[in-house]
Amino acid sequence: MEQSDLRHQLLLLGLRAETAQVYERLLWVQQASEGELAAALRMGHEAVRVALKDLITWGLVARHDIQGTDRVVRAVVPEAGLEALVHRHQADLEQARIAVSQAFETHRRSARRADVESPVEVVTGVAVKVRIRQLVNSARHEIRRLDRPPHLFGAANRTEIEQLGRGMRYRVVYSRECLELPGYLEDNVNPCMEAGEQARVTTVLPVNMTILDNDLAWLARPAEGPAATLTIVYAGGLLEALIGLFETCWTMSVPLHLSDGGSGSINPADRKLLVLLNAGVSDNRAAETLGLSRRTFYRRLEQLMARTATTSRFQLAAAAARRGWL
């Protein structure tokens, strides 16, 4: 992974720029003194001190006192600290969801007082799928989507692939549940990404939502028969709030990569394994998706760790990205 890529991932986790720079340095050198960090990064001692305080608070760095030397710090196993950062982002998403709900109620009350036409259209029952197809075909430039199960349509998305071929831009954030659905990665996500879709993945999403250009958005409640509901939101404050919600989710999600890496550097099956692990898919679901037994899955994982001289999945993901495998 290039330094700029790793730093971008650290920023997505909520680290400040200086903090990410210091942590990145410690990942590669394992341990260093405050003075060594300041000299290597060309940062002031106070800035390094503040960054280390943040890293220690999040459990990503620990002090390592060595007698007769400047105080040394070292990078530690990051799982606990990263888990805390992820939970903080999940709390931010929940606040965003609440803000959207409040914006809707405020706008609805204002519209009622002004006795104007509602900016929201509700479609139910069998008309839902027909209306979605009409809307998708009316898009001109870009479609943005928050994708979480359950889904109204099957896994294959031929319409998106055709639109991507005509120059339409797609940005999609998938929940981890999507990648754990049998066949969804192979039949939907991968073909769309190969056609040009920009895709990211996150642990959870607050809504199932699609935005067409900057003209409208819809929230879908998939169900069979008359229980299916589609809420279409037109131009106004609520649409702006939904666009803001998408961009927040996009910023805090992890990119999915489908590059083949260097010629002969890694076979497609191992690359798919790394993609699933990087997306946070469980071991059982990843093994099922790959058609492997648990024993074979873990043997392949151990072989990749041995090949990259790593001892944890975090290190393996960093090494795989650095080598262009992700």
Rank of each mutant, 00 (worst) to 15 (best):
E177G: 04
I161C: 00
E162W: 04
P191K: 01
R200G: 07
T202A: 10
T251H: 14
L205M: 12
E197H: 03
T231W: 02
L242P: 08
L242V: 10
A223N: 11
G236V: 11
A241K: 14
S253H: 05
V233N: 05
R171C: 05
L239P: 13
P206G: 03
P191G: 03
E197P: 02
P226W: 10
A223R: 11
T231N: 01
R169Q: 15
I232P: 12
I211F: 03
N214C: 06
L185A: 11
N190F: 10
G196N: 07
A235I: 04
T203Q: 15
G183Y: 12
M193E: 15
W250R: 00
N208S: 14
Q163F: 07
N157V: 01
V204K: 08
F246P: 00
M168R: 13
S259W: 07
E247G: 05
L245I: 05
L219T: 06
A155H: 13
P150N: 03
S259N: 14
A217M: 09
V189S: 00
V172H: 01
N208M: 08
T210P: 10
D187P: 00
N190A: 14
E177K: 10
L185H: 03
R171A: 07
C178S: 14
N157W: 05
D213W: 12
V189I: 14
W250G: 03
R166V: 04
G237S: 12
R171G: 07
T229F: 07
C178G: 01
L212P: 15
D215N: 13
L181Y: 04
G225H: 10
A195L: 09
V173K: 05
T248F: 03
G236K: 12
I211C: 11
R166N: 11
H151S: 04
C192K: 07
G183V: 09
A220H: 08
Q163V: 00
D215T: 14
A156M: 00
Y170V: 01
M168N: 01
G154N: 06
E197S: 12
H151N: 05
N157P: 00
V201A: 05
G167T: 03
I161Q: 04
P255E: 10
D187T: 02
E240P: 08
T203P: 05
I211Y: 02
E160G: 02
E240H: 04
L185M: 08
P255W: 10
D215K: 12
L219C: 13
G225R: 13
G154M: 01
E240L: 01
H151F: 14
E247T: 03
Y234G: 12
R176A: 03
N190E: 07
L164Y: 04
L212D: 13
L258K: 05
T159W: 08
L164D: 07
N190I: 13
V204T: 15
R200L: 02
A195M: 10
A217Q: 08
I161E: 11
E162F: 00
P150D: 09
G154R: 12
T231I: 15
V201Y: 09
V201F: 03
A228V: 05
P182D: 08
T202Q: 09
E197F: 07
V233T: 14
A228R: 13
M209T: 09
L238D: 13
A217S: 15
T251L: 11
N208R: 15
A217G: 05
Q198K: 14
P182E: 04
T251A: 14
V172K: 10
R166W: 06
L185Q: 09
V233A: 09
T159M: 06
L230W: 07
E194N: 02
E197R: 14
W250H: 02
